[in-house]
Nucleic acid binder design. Structure first.
Length: 341
DNA sequence: AATTCGGGGAT
DNA sequence: ATCCCAGAATT
């Protein structure tokens, strides 16, 4: 039996019941694929259901505000996915008459859609012969065929896409693609897979050569930068506070946060500097909310964070009631603070 | 070609 | 701590 047939047979027996598996609607498939980029099924599922409910069609998504889209995306991370999702919905409604592109070639032109996602939508929604290559597929192919090319090198990316295309099933591409990913997620797991019950264990190169723990090969680990965040939590005469939207480059684009001073600082320094971000506000009292820094860990940055409670007498024009903060899309770091404050 | 985008779960 | 997740865009 061929590799692809074994994958298909395994999938038929082991596939999970997931919300986006009840449809081939390209809008729904697109939604699920964007959400699941670099995201586990367990984390993404509730967000998928939420978006499906709030935006049943691409028109609903296109007509929504970015703020609402980001709010529903809050906590899922990689927020450019949400901004691009919204941009592409508007693009399809405005420029493509609301009709979703139906070929790999056209799909890959969409913002936020790369080789993987275009292949997934083309194969699942339109039955086009396109092999998906995600993290699961890299692992399954690297092990089964004993390939030690780094999966994140230009040569590796090209090689694995070619290999995936060569070994894909010639029919049932829809189930085959989902099957090889499911197989990678459940059976050919990153760590300590149970190869004794694997249907491919009679022909897996990595298993025969005892390389299961060594493959796939991935180049270099990332370097983590440390940053010091000092958030100014203003409390004005009405008990309201201030938020600012993050603009420009960097993390959390277009999300909201308290006014931020990014530097090492003690109470005196903060007191001296607060008017840099709040020039119109006179501070009456300032106190440190958390003595030990809250360390918020992102993949490339560790944020050592202090929250400063800044009391002022005046009533701020753009003050926001604390009970209204939940309306704004904020990073998890801010949401966690609001919860405990 | 290398870096940068989040957050969480498993080990 | 480290790894990695149904990757893509930017530098």
């Amino acid at each position: 039996m061929t590799f692809s047939q074994k994958i298909l047979d395994w999938y038929a027996l082991n596939k999970r019941s997931l919300p986006w598996r009840n449809t081939v609607n390209p809008y729904k498939i697109w939604l699920s694929e964007i959400m699941l980029q670099q995201t586990r099924v367990a984390q993404g599922t509730s967000y998928y259901l939420s978006f499906e409910k709030h935006f049943p069609t691409i028109f609903d998504l296109a007509n929504a505000s970015e703020e609402k889209v980001l709010k529903l995306w809050q906590g899922l991370g990689y927020y450019s996915r949400a901004r691009n999702l919204h941009f592409t919905a508007k693009h399809i409604v405005t420029n493509l008459n609301g009709e979703f592109p139906n070929t790999y070639k056209e799909l890959v032109k969409l913002k936020g859609v790369g080789d993987y996602t275009a292949s997934a939508i083309a194969s699942i929604s339109f039955n086009e012969q396109q092999a998906v290559v995600d993290g699961n597929v890299y692992r399954v192919l690297a092990r089964y065929y004993g390939v030690d090319l780094p999966i994140n090198s230009a040569e590796g990316i090209k090689y694995f896409k070619t290999l995936a295309t060569e070994v894909m099933h010639s029919s049932d591409i829809r189930d085959y693609n989902q099957g090889i990913m499911e197989f990678g997620a459940l059976q050919c797991a990153p760590k300590n897979p149970d190869c004794t019950i694997c249907p491919l264990n009679d022909s897996c190169v990595a298993l025969q050569k005892n390389l299961v723990g060594k493959l796939p090969v991935k180049l270099k680990k990332i370097k983590v930068k440390k940053r010091n965040f000092n958030y100014l939590v203003v409390v004005d005469g009405n008990g309201n506070t201030l938020l600012q939207q993050r603009t420009g480059k960097g993390i959390w684009q277009n999300l909201y946060q308290f006014p931020l001073l990014e530097e090492e600082a003690d109470a005196k320094t903060i007191y001296d500097l607060y008017n840099k971000v709040l020039p119109t506000v006179k501070a009456k009292d300032i106190r440190l909310f958390n003595k030990d820094a809250i360390v918020h860990k992102l993949s490339h940055q560790h944020l050592f964070t202090h929250f400063w409670i800044l009391k002022v007498d005046e009533v701020l024009e753009d003050g926001i009631a604390f009970s209204d903060l939940e309306k704004y899309p904020v990073p998890v770091l801010i949401a966690d603070f609001i919860k405990t404050f």
